[in-house]
C-alpha cells in the first residue's frame, strides 16, 4: 500500500536520461524561458518549439502518450485566460448573446488565448520530461549547481525523503475516515454531518499528520546526531561537467537562441 506511484520518475535507458541533470535542468528552464519570450501568435515558432519538445520526448523513450497525457493535467488553469477572448480589443470575429449579454470574440483576443494555452502546454511538457527522466537526487544536484543555498537544498532533500512516508500516512488517515463514514439503516437521517464539522475533522487529520511529522523529525534528528550531525549541512563537491555535457548544453542553448531569433527577426 505505497503511494510511490506518485513519483513521476520513470527509469529508461535513453539519451535524455543519461544527460547530466545540470544540463537538463538549465536547458529546461531555458526552453520554458524561450517559450515565454516568444511573442503571441507566432505560430510557426510554436510549432518548432513543440517539435523540439516532442523530439526530446521521443529521445527520452518515456512515450509520447505518457507525456501528453500528463500535460493535459495542467489544462484547467487555461480557464483563467478565457475572458481575454472577449475583452481584448481587435477586429470582431463573431458574437453571440446569452440573455442580455452579448459576447464578441475578437481576433486578437482569440489569438492571445490560443497562444497562452499553447505556451502553457508546450512548457509543461518540458517540465514533465525533466521530472520523468531525472531522479530527484540529481535534480537536487542541479539546484546546487545553479546556486540554490545548501540549507535550502537540504530541506528539499529531507522533504523528498519523507514525502512518501507522510503521503502514505495521509492516505491511511483518509481510508480510516472513509471506513467509518457509514449510513444508518433508519431512513430520513441526514448523512455526513455539516460542512463545518467535516472541515474540522479534516483539520484534525491535518493536525494528526503534523504532530506525527513533528515527532518523526525529532527521531530523525536524534538519528542524525547519533551519526555525528552537528547542525552544519555538509555536501560532497559537485562532479565536473564532461565535455559531452558542455557540448549538449551549448548546442541546446544554440537551438533555443535560433528559435528565439526566428520569433523576433522574421
Amino acid at each position: 500500500m505505497h503511494i510511490h506511484f506518485l513519483d513521476p520518475y520513470h527509469h529508461r535507458i535513453s539519451l535524455v536520461h543519461s544527460l547530466d541533470a545540470r544540463v537538463k535542468f538549465v536547458l529546461t528552464i531555458a526552453f520554458i524561458l524561450t517559450t515565454a519570450l516568444t511573442p503571441h501568435a507566432a505560430w510557426p515558432v510554436y510549432i518548432l518549439l513543440f517539435a523540439t519538445i516532442l523530439a526530446a520526448t521521443l529521445l527520452s523513450e518515456l512515450g509520447i502518450g505518457f507525456v501528453l497525457g500528463r500535460a493535459a493535467l495542467a489544462f484547467p488553469f487555461v480557464l483563467a485566460a478565457l475572458p481575454v477572448i472577449f475583452t481584448l480589443p481587435g477586429p470582431a470575429l463573431t458574437s453571440f448573446s446569452i440573455g442580455d449579454w452579448t459576447l464578441t470574440v475578437s481576433q486578437s483576443g482569440l489569438e492571445r488565448f490560443i497562444s497562452v494555452a499553447l505556451k502553457s502546454w508546450i512548457s509543461v511538457q518540458a517540465a514533465i520530461v525533466l521530472a520523468s527522466s531525472t531522479p530527484f537526487p540529481d535534480l537536487m544536484m542541479a539546484m546546487r549547481a545553479v546556486g540554490v543555498p545548501r540549507l535550502l537544498v537540504a530541506i528539499f532533500g529531507l522533504m523528498w525523503r519523507y514525502l512518501f512516508v507522510l503521503a502514505d500516512e495521509a492516505l491511511r488517515l483518509l481510508r480510516a475516515r472513509a471506513a467509518r463514514s457509514g449510513q444508518a439503516d433508519q431512513p430520513g437521517l441526514k448523512n455526513g454531518g455539516s460542512v463545518t464539522w467535516r472541515a474540522r475533522i479534516a483539520g484534525g487529520m491535518a493536525g494528526n499528520l503534523f504532530l506525527r511529522g513533528f515527532e518523526r523529525s525529532d527521531r530523525i534528528y536524534m538519528a542524525m546526531v547519533a551519526r555525528g550531525y552537528d547542525g552544519e549541512v555538509r555536501v560532497a563537491p559537485l562532479p565536473p561537467l564532461h565535455a559531452g555535457s558542455w557540448l549538449a548544453l551549448g548546442s541546446g542553448l544554440a537551438v533555443l537562441a535560433i528559435l528565439l531569433g526566428l520569433a523576433y527577426w522574421l
Partner: peptide
C-alpha cells in the same frame, strides 16, 4: 533542519486531506 524538511512533507501530504 530535519523539522522543516519533515513538516514540508507533512504540508504536502496534508494538502491531500
Amino acid at each position: 533542519v530535519p523539522m522543516m524538511g519533515v513538516l514540508a512533507a507533512a504540508i504536502f501530504a496534508g494538502q491531500m486531506l
